[in-house]
Amino acid sequence: MLAALVGAVVNLDGRPRYIHSGWFLISTANLVVIVAMLAVFALAIAAPFPRDRGEA
């Protein structure tokens, strides 16, 4: 019941959305995942890492 309720918060079951150009075709969902992966990679490298007080 609860699961069914929250499961419908964002419905991804609709008509598929795709980006199509010549022989290139990608689903919006896959594109979002790949772009997010690149963004997280860039962030992981760029974001400052907390300094450690106990450094010897």
């Binding site: 991804l12 079951d13 598929p16 959305r17 075709l25 990608i26 689903s27 919006t28 969902a29 896959n30």
Partner: peptide, 25 residues
């Protein structure tokens, strides 16, 4: 209709708007 044919990059895709096996790009 779900863009799942091999000629539609189907191995990567999932039904609806879910992400699929993007690692098969």
């Amino acid at each position: 209709t779900e863009h799942l044919l091999g000629s539609q990059w189907g191995m990567m895709n999932e039904t609806g708007n879910y992400p699929g096996q993007a690692w098969l790009w």
